[in-house]
Design a protein around this nucleic acid. Sequence first.
DNA 1: CATGAATGAGCCTTCATTCAT
DNA 2: TATGAATGAAGGCTCATTCAT
Lengths: 205, 205, 205, 205
Amino acid sequence: MAREKGSEKRQRILEAALKVFAERGFYNAKVSEVARVAGVADGTIYLYFENKDDLLIQLFEDRMEYIIRRLQDELERTPGDPLERIRRLIHLHVDLALHDPDLAEFITVELRQSSKFVKEYENPQFLEYLRVLRDIVEEGQRGGFIRPGLDSRLIVRAIFGALDEVLLTLTLASRSRSVDVAMSADQLADLLIDGMSTPETRLHS
Amino acid sequence: MAREKGSEKRQRILEAALKVFAERGFYNAKVSEVARVAGVADGTIYLYFENKDDLLIQLFEDRMEYIIRRLQDELERTPGDPLERIRRLIHLHVDLALHDPDLAEFITVELRQSSKFVKEYENPQFLEYLRVLRDIVEEGQRGGFIRPGLDSRLIVRAIFGALDEVLLTLTLASRSRSVDVAMSADQLADLLIDGMSTPETRLHS
Amino acid sequence: MAREKGSEKRQRILEAALKVFAERGFYNAKVSEVARVAGVADGTIYLYFENKDDLLIQLFEDRMEYIIRRLQDELERTPGDPLERIRRLIHLHVDLALHDPDLAEFITVELRQSSKFVKEYENPQFLEYLRVLRDIVEEGQRGGFIRPGLDSRLIVRAIFGALDEVLLTLTLASRSRSVDVAMSADQLADLLIDGMSTPETRLHS
Amino acid sequence: MAREKGSEKRQRILEAALKVFAERGFYNAKVSEVARVAGVADGTIYLYFENKDDLLIQLFEDRMEYIIRRLQDELERTPGDPLERIRRLIHLHVDLALHDPDLAEFITVELRQSSKFVKEYENPQFLEYLRVLRDIVEEGQRGGFIRPGLDSRLIVRAIFGALDEVLLTLTLASRSRSVDVAMSADQLADLLIDGMSTPETRLHS
DNA sequence: CATGAATGAGCCTTCATTCAT
DNA sequence: TATGAATGAAGGCTCATTCAT
């Protein structure tokens, strides 16, 4: 059946959509261009996706699933304390963006894009990403690593926002000139982790 | 003459555009609905703006100018050290968003929106906002309030990103249930300021 | 009263309309550009003309009246035989076009233009021009200068068509490079007059 | 593939455009009406033509190609001297107009129409038509049939202009009352051919 | 008389989606 | 499954015309 997730053609279309959406933005992207880049007929897209919105959503979920899987693999392999794990998460996030600029641009620019997307679509994968991060933060608060007075949801949003904005800047910048992204990741992690640490666990003290 | 910036009708159209763009998103918004909300004819919009894109850009510039003016007024009145001034900036930013949810939604959702907007349009007002913030950060670094090892441009982007994301969340949330926004602002300021402080100037130590 | 024919402002508008219609063509010309060129407000045009179509018609009539007056003056002063008078007419027509290229372009390009103009508007001035020419032709036929077998209406249309097309070519050409228009007029007159002459009156025999 | 010249749907659209442009004039014609007459959707027109202007140009080229092909077939079959061939050309031109009044009206009214068409578009097919005619004229001059003093380009324009104007008149007239078109063609040919003949070759002498 | 800002009907064009093959 | 020609709803924009000043 055409709709199954593993279909090779479905992947080709998602690949093409990522490329085209990153380049033109969702609303300026034409379904026919996605088809052209994917090497399929326009109509074929509708065998795998309900409509253009569905293509956006499924693309987002597909990529977020991948990111979350990578994230959880990474975290399982990282034994350290919660602060260290947040540092790992930031680095991974930055590495992924560095390795796949189209994906970075797609996430940073299009995630908030359509009001439909933001307001109506629940966006479960994104929420799960935040959930994973929030669990670490709350574990850090229970363990005395992170100040308990901070609202964990707020910390999480702040981390994501800072990461997202920095990556947007880095991605757009790196397309023209080269940037030392690793150092940026380090500094960003320093900034955020020091911000949430308790006096005892703080690096710069 | 009809086209001058101060025109009352131009303001009505910008007001309406803000409302409609915030509600529907730029690409889903219809010029005719902006006209209807503004109480003018469709064609009237084209007396004041070149096209729909131009309306978006001018709306953005108009609102950013206002925000920057408010910001600079506030900073002039705030005598404190750079860290204190950043705290003031964060509070003002949050207050503005709280006071004008349409504006908050417009900025948080639409600023990155069109690829044209992000990639081609220089967006001078936004850059000036960042510039103001960066000046404070660098002053703080020179004065020993902020760790000099951090890249000021990165800090600035991180602050803006965290603020922006938190406001997006707060705005969308506050439309349904009520949220203690002042406390959120406080915590966000704590997080970010502690993150960049030197050990001597840190609050939580 | 504003509508009277002699009004200086009315003349300014007609002048401007001729210029703009010649340059852009009637359908591509904007009323507001005619107003701008005339140095009046858009609305002023509607004090003197019912609408854009009416402006076209009145412009045409105004110019044709002038042409016909010039033509009749010329013919009264020309004592020669009918063939000679037709030659004079052709030269005058060409001279007028040479002297006022906008008028030439307007007549050659726009006269047939709007189907409304061609099919509904009677165009009395143009018909009078043809009438004047036809009278000469028929006089020539009665006097044995022109072959009586030819339909005078047909001769008249053929002369006008040949003249019109040649002038269109000359006008468009003379805008770029210079052309010996006087010689062209001579040759055209030779061609047409020899074509209609009886053997006795023919020049080239 | 949809876009190839031979497409049956493309022909249907050209047919419809000819009819609608002839009836209303290019600028008063609506694309949607062309679509309706062609029995296709509005959008279909844009699969075959870039825009409304392109439809006009391609229609013109398509019909001129046909006319030129017919003309050259006819001339190949006509053994006579150059004057005789010009007579044949005039008759063919008139016959075509008689047989397809929409085409006649389209050519006579719309050819000069849009300033774009006249001033910017090169109009190669029309120039080829004139070229064919000019070749005959110059052959006639070399062979002593046509007075060598006449500028061949001028003769050609005069013939075309006379033909065009007469056909405009005939076409508009024949839509209401009936006219003896064959006789008109004969007389027009007589007029023009006698006008350019040398004394030796002239019919009426 | 004159102005010109405002109007709004109307049209070209786009492009997501369908469906006969 | 796959195709891609065809569809037609929808909307940005123009510009002739109006009318309050």
